[in-house]
Amino acid sequence: MMKQVNFNGTTLPAIGIGTWHMGDSPQTYTQEKATILYGLQHGATVIDTAEMYGEGNAEKLVGDVLQNFDRSKVFLISKFYPQNATKDKMKQALNRSLKRLKTDYLDLYLLHWRGPVPLAETVAGLVELQKAGKIRYWGVSNFDTADLKELYAQPQGDQVFANEDLYNLANRGIEYDLLPWQRRHQLPLIAYAPIDQGDSRGQKLTKNSTIQQIAQAHQVTPMQILLAWTIQAKDIMAIPQTSNVDHMKQNILVGGIDLSNQEMQQIDSQFSAPVFKQPLQMI
């Protein structure tokens, strides 16, 4: 049974579908399409994409998938470049994304990362798109605590729906101040790269003996334990990317894994939480 998260009154699956590096190759296109469709059919009904991914190729792939699934049952997320964060350029970027996605609205539209456009103008543009019915919600990505504080100081800035950041067992820096700040403001987190490809900065996460022992106890793979760790909190959604149906099946099954307090403590002893502020990690 897939875990659910409550994003400001909207109930969503704890595991969605990331699409970075997808849609670029004709050789893998059919397999990628089948993988995303399998995920949708089995409860992973959040798709995360961006105009940056393959300069629109990922959005085109998702658009093709959506022809075979009820659009109203999908929570569709896309992102726009910082250079498109002015009112006019944002509107144009959104229209291009919608055309590629073969839909007339997004559920969530995110500023991909901060750029030179003042946040006040970006927020005003997003609110206009929301009022026009082109997007249901808006949010941000790759924002640190200071960025969010600045955002909340803008008119209607506190209407932000979610922040999407890098978060996994090898990259826990946001736990020091960003995640607590978001929780105080009831701002949910979307975790990208939630299993860090199983390897980060020389740390072979899946080879760790504690991870392997816990995986064995649950009769799952070490990769599934890494993903399960990421979504143990009730306010975090993970969007792992895979182009493989078997991996998609494994990702979805993670929604039924509950790690005990003891297991979480064992993992903590191997991969400790931050004890000081760290720069926001991005990939």
Rank of each mutant, 00 (worst) to 15 (best):
M2H: 05
Q4S: 14
T11I: 15
I17Q: 14
I17G: 01
I36T: 03
Y38S: 06
L40F: 02
G43C: 10
T45K: 11
D48N: 12
E55D: 13
G56H: 03
E59G: 00
G63E: 00
F75H: 09
I77N: 04
N84H: 12
S97W: 03
S97L: 03
L98P: 07
T103Q: 08
T103I: 09
G115V: 06
P118S: 09
E121T: 04
V127H: 08
Q130N: 10
K134D: 07
W138R: 07
D144Q: 11
D147C: 12
L148F: 08
E150M: 14
E150T: 15
A153F: 06
D158G: 06
A162Y: 03
N163I: 05
L166N: 08
H185R: 08
Q186G: 01
P188Q: 07
A193K: 11
Q197D: 12
R201F: 11
I211D: 06
H218W: 10
V220S: 00
I225T: 02
I225V: 15
L226A: 05
L227C: 10
A233N: 11
Q241E: 15
Q250P: 02
N251W: 05
S260E: 13
S260G: 10
S260A: 10
N261M: 10
Q262S: 13
S269A: 15
S272N: 06
A273Q: 15
